[in-house]
């Protein structure tokens, strides 16, 4: 019975595997929400230190309860819908953004044992396909708010995310080519077998991935959709309360998911040095490195301009990603025969 619950991925569909699936979903949700809470806390604290401040330190010891208090506040706030907004779309838009954000977590392999996550054989494709759905929620939110800043923010997001999805996907293709699989678990296994993380043969792809991921996540220096100094808050200008929390959450969930993806595709996933166990631990460290890089960038960089951003994607990143694909093919032929 317990075997069925825990190893539901490889078992036929029964009530026990269904229980396992459900448990996995709920647990992943809970863990991710906890991770998001402390990612926000960590971001504020780390950026605070970088800027010579202390960061949150009032609620709880070392301000540890700050994010929880914030989320609680957002949840019990009045749900304001602007009078002239498109009510139905306005209400549904955050959910359209939020659901795929959590759905992509299903393929992020935190550990080798798929206790909680699905081992999809098209994991990479699944991730890219689902994460694009979120853009619809963002555009809808901007449009339905009936606010000029929101619509500009929403359209900027659409333009930016669609542009950057292409180099992001192309940069992943190199990895897929080397591993010969779209399955994220398989990609990690191949790295383990070769004893070589993909970041080394795929260094160009990794750089393209990092830049495209930053833009895809709309984080500094590519945080144009919510450029505060220009667009107040971008697409969620009119949102408050728990709908705002949904946008906020999906943003951070994507950050964590993208960090997980980076760790899996380029940094060898759960593999640790000297064959040490504790896969989830190494995975967390690698994910955190990516997240930390995002924080670091945010504390350092000014914001790029919208036209420069588009030009950068189409003129530099995509050619580079294609070049990387070419290099991968050559590597596959003569070096990493897999």
């Amino acid at each position: 019975m317990w075997n069925n619950v825990l190893h539901w991925v490889d078992q036929p569909f029964t009530s026990a595997t269904y229980l396992g699936m459900l448990l996995g979903g709920v647990l992943t949700l809970a863990i991710t929400l906890g991770a998001v809470t402390y990612t926000i806390y960590g971001e504020r604290k780390i950026i605070g230190w970088m800027q010579g401040r202390v960061g949150p330190n009032r609620v709880g010891p070392f301000g540890l309860m700050q994010s929880i208090a914030d989320i609680l506040k957002l949840l019990i706030k009045e749900d304001i819908v602007p009078a002239k907004a498109d009510k139905a779309l306005f209400m549904i838009a955050p959910i359209i953004t939020y659901v795929p954000a959590f759905a992509v977590l299903a393929v992020i392999p935190y550990t080798f044992h798929h206790y909680f996550t699905a081992r999809l054989n098209i994991g990479v494709l699944y991730y890219i396909a689902l994460s694009s759905i979120s853009i619809i929620g963002i555009v809808l939110g901007g449009w339905a708010s009936n606010n000029k800043y929101a619509i500009i923010g929403g359209l900027r997001s659409a333009a930016q995310m669609i542009s950057y999805e292409i180099p992001l996907a192309l940069s992943m293709l190199g990895v897929v080519l080397l591993s010969g699989s779209l399955d994220i678990t398989r990609i990690i296994e191949v790295q383990q077998q070769n004893g070589l993380w993909n970041v080394f043969p795929q260094i160009l792809g990794f750089i393209v991935f990092l830049i495209a991921a930053t833009a895809e996540l709309a984080r500094a220096p590519f945080d144009l959709p919510e450029a505060e100094s220009e667009l107040v808050s971008g697409y969620f200008t009119e949102y408050s309360g728990f709908r705002f929390a949904f946008y906020m959450l999906s943003e951070y969930v994507y950050l964590i998911a993208m960090a997980g993806l980076a760790a899996a595709l380029f940094l060898g996933g759960w593999t640790g040095p000297f064959g040490l166990g504790w896969g989830w631990f190494w995975y967390a460290i690698k994910s955190f490195l990516f997240i930390f890089l995002m924080f670091w960038l945010r504390a350092t960089m000014p914001r790029a301009r919208v036209d420069q951003l588009m030009g950068f994607a189409w003129k530099y990143l995509i050619p580079l990603a294609i070049l990387n694909l070419l290099i991968s093919a050559v590597e596959k032929l003569y070096w990493l025969k897999g």
Partner: peptide, 8 residues
Amino acid sequence: LLDLGAMS
């Protein structure tokens, strides 16, 4: 710099 999006 804050206008340009850099906070630090």
